[in-house]
Amino acid sequence: MAPYQYELPTTGAISFTDICIDGTGSYTVALVEATTARANLRSILKEHKHGAGEKDYLRIIKTADGYLPHIYSIIACVTAGELSLRASPVFSWRSTLSSRGFATPSSRTDVPSLYADLAFTLLTLAYAYSNLSSVTLAAIGQYELERTISDAERKAKDEKLNFAANLLARASGVYEHLAEKVLPEWDKAIGATKTERPPELAKVVVTALAKMAVADANQLAIRKLMTRSAYDSTLTPGPPLPKSHPPTSLLGKLYINASSLYTSALSLVNAASPTSNDSKEVNANLRHYLSDESTFCSAMSHRWFGVDAGEAPGRCGEGVAFLAWSKSELESLKESKLKLSVGGKVNKEEKAAKKDRLADELDSAKVFL
């Protein structure tokens, strides 16, 4: 599987020396440095959006990381009274998760408060973590199925697989921090003032993204758990399972946990997506991804529960029922008309990879049946 591919937002220019009042003159250099750091982030996001070729997500991560200490420091100074604001600052960011954002990619949303800029920067960082994970996975390919791979090569790619999973864990941590710390502070800062926010800045949506990142990481952890047995199975496909295979009941439990995370995330996203307002509705691509991954993980859990039951005395009928259930779920996904896309454009490579994964799992289910 490949994690959900986010389109990164872009932002407008702003100068902290223009919006902040430094009564003592102690922070003149710091404000200039903060403006420069933000300009660097704006520049690299603009370059990413309009540039062709391979995307450098690691550079985006480093640039966002470089800006975060500045915006945190400015917020702290304003809170402590060491800096004051000429007026409530308004930052311009482009929403990339709303249905309207996909329909009109050039549209931007004006969001007030320093916390708004912090929130969008954290979102950008988490998106980049997830996308870098996808790039890393694409680079290693399905190495566990290569019959000629050496132990050294497998170990190196195992480490990259771990790295991809860790990136998703970091993304989840950023989302959780945003949902539990930053957004409540933003609410306190603006008080009773009502402001329209894009869907990605709703607490329930950010919480959903955190759950999705954990579920994606769980799938990679399952893949890592099965790398050795997957290689052994390419040499001797079909039952019985190789000795290197992890316990089937454990795999079933891990997959059902991932499925529940996707389902929970989908429920949160749907709750935050009023159909009457495209600007607040989360785009269909993300909702389809959550739905399909939930179904896929459910199918895989039923398969391994079925295999586990089939290997136990007197439970063959139960095993067949689980396997038939799994096969039915996979077939429903095969017929899905989901278009995997980034920025509204169909991603043919990801769509082909999804079809291949479903075909492989269906073939495997038929073998066990």
Rank of each mutant, 00 (worst) to 15 (best):
K334H: 12
L358A: 05
D308C: 08
E350P: 01
W325M: 08
A312N: 09
K339A: 06
K355E: 14
V320F: 05
K337S: 11
L358D: 10
K334N: 11
L333F: 05
S326K: 03
A352Q: 15
R357V: 08
V342F: 02
A309V: 11
A352T: 15
A359L: 13
S341L: 01
E331L: 10
K348M: 15
K355V: 08
L340T: 05
K348V: 15
L323H: 08
D308M: 04
S336Q: 06
S328T: 12
E329M: 09
V346E: 15
A312P: 05
G314C: 09
N347G: 01
S341V: 04
E350W: 06
V342T: 14
L340A: 07
S341R: 04
G314F: 09
K355G: 02
F322P: 03
R357H: 05
S336M: 03
L340P: 02
K337R: 06
S332F: 05
K355T: 08
G310S: 13
N347Q: 08
G319A: 04
S326R: 01
F322W: 04
A321T: 14
S336R: 07
E329N: 03
L340H: 13
K334G: 15
V320Y: 06
S332P: 04
A321V: 15
E349W: 03
V346Y: 10
K327M: 13
L333E: 09
R315S: 08
D308H: 10
S341D: 11
F322L: 04
G317T: 08
V320C: 04
K354D: 14
A353N: 14
R315P: 01
P313T: 00
D308A: 14
V342N: 07
C316L: 03
A359Q: 14
A312F: 07
G314R: 01
A312W: 00
K327Y: 09
S326F: 06
S336G: 03
E350Y: 05
G343M: 05
K327I: 11
V307W: 03
K334Y: 10
S328I: 03
K327E: 15
G317Q: 02
G319E: 02
K334F: 08
E331G: 12
D356A: 10
E349Q: 10
G314M: 09
D308T: 07
S326H: 03
S336Y: 05
G310H: 06
L340F: 14
L330G: 09
A309E: 12
E331A: 07
A309K: 03
N347A: 00
A312C: 04
K355D: 11
S341K: 06
K334I: 07
V320S: 01
A321E: 15
K327T: 15
R315M: 08
K351E: 14
L340K: 10
K345R: 07
S341C: 09
G344K: 02
G310Q: 07
E349A: 03
K345Y: 06
A321S: 10
E331I: 03
D356S: 05
S341W: 02
A353T: 10
E318D: 09
E335T: 06
